[in-house]
Design a binder for these strands. Structure first.
Lengths: 211, 211
DNA sequence: TGTACATCAGTGAACGCGCGTTCACTGATGTAC
DNA sequence: TGTACATCAGTGAACGCGCGTTCACTGATGTAC
């Protein structure tokens, strides 16, 4: 399972610790995330992380930043693929968001849950979160041009779209959506239906649901 | 601050513990919520709670249930006041939700954050959460009749409205909404604007903002 | 009204646990000459 | 190429902490007679 380190020095301990943290979140949940557990997973003494992170908050901030970067990259990719179809960009970007949340709920939660308290101390986090929001605003503007989304200040409409998606996945993760609704349709259909209450979308062909 | 108990027996320790828990959430946050802290706040030995709660989960479930009841009652009240005006019902119910979240964020989070894992064990929680959702569905139906909300299965549209509000408050609480948007308008205006992307609402007079 | 007794709610000591953090240390690495 | 030394990353023991939970107990309460 855990291969022996060849040398005294690890080489890339910082990134290894971040990866281990994400892994622990996925497999054991947020309660199990600690500097000690992360160190143990990498096979290093429990004090070693302090060479790379000032404290636990700093590790969490790094994990959050990584999560936002994952989102940013994935949305950038789908936006590029559907360059000329804003409605599609909107749906696929939303789907990216939902997929992240469902595939890796604990990482998603840490990323989006404001665990980064003193943002000032973590400029990388602030930067990628700003970039991500700007990306959404762009998609919203393109949608507005084609009357897919209602008029209004683009950043405000972006907040609306984001809220809708964030609320949907939060309620899903927190098990609050009634079974009667849940059992009636797959998540992707629910996403499109919900988004369709706000945006003018073409109906999806029932079999085109990606993964 | 803490008055001496007159007698050995407390009389209503169970409810006192729940109230103390809510108080701790408000004043010290979720991290400080423990059976021990709750017992201490009430002025009782740390083992006393076990006479009333099987374990920590049971206390949390009780606090969650209390939170949902607060929501349920408040929404029922505003729905009654605006009996003949579904759009208003919608806005005020949403406002109730947002107010709860902003006034008592930690209690709100515990209530809505699926901390009640094995719902089966807490039927009171399940019941009040179902009742609350049904209430929203009713308001949604009334809104649909007046074309305030789009057509579609009422429970699905209710999920949409709920998601929108839940996402908005979650992002607010988690400090994710960009300052540029935040600084431009009060929360209530943001709520109405966001809800307005999904519902056909009359514009609010700028000075009618309740508390 | 008085007494015996069962029931119940709260006590306080004790358990083992994992945590964040500090500290003096040591092994490995790289650089100057 | 070889040696001295500064730097750096990781070690392992130790600290104090608050937690959930158990357990034998005891003080208060209520009921039967």
């Amino acid at each position: 399972m855990k291969r022996k380190r060849r040398s005294y020095h690890h080489g890339d301990l910082k990134n290894a610790l971040i990866a281990a943290g994400i892994d622990i979140l996925a497999k054991e949940g947020a309660g199990a995330l600690s500097l000690r557990s992360v160190a143990q997973k990498v096979g290093v003494s429990h004090a070693a992380p302090y060479a790379h992170f000032a404290d636990k908050q700093a590790l969490i901030a790094a994990i959050s930043t990584e999560g936002y970067e994952r989102l940013y990259e994935a949305i950038r990719a789908v936006a590029a693929v559907h360059q000329r179809d804003p409605a599609r960009q909107l749906v696929e970007a939303a789907w990216v968001y939902v997929k992240f949340a469902l595939d890796d709920p604990e990482h998603f939660k840490v990323t989006l849950s404001g665990v980064v308290e003193r943002e000032k101390d973590y400029p990388a986090f602030v930067e990628v979160s700003k970039k991500s929001f700007a990306q959404v605003v762009e998609i919203v503007q393109a949608c507005q041009k084609k009357a897919v989304l209602p008029k209004g200040a683009p950043d405000l409409v972006a907040v609306g779209v984001w809220s809708l998606m964030h609320g949907l996945v939060s309620l899903l993760l927190e098990n609050q959506i009634p079974r009667s609704v849940l059992d009636r349709m797959p998540v992707r259909t629910m996403l499109v239906a919900t988004l369709g209450q706000m945006a003018r979308l073409d109906p999806e062909p029932p079999c085109a649901t990606p993964s």
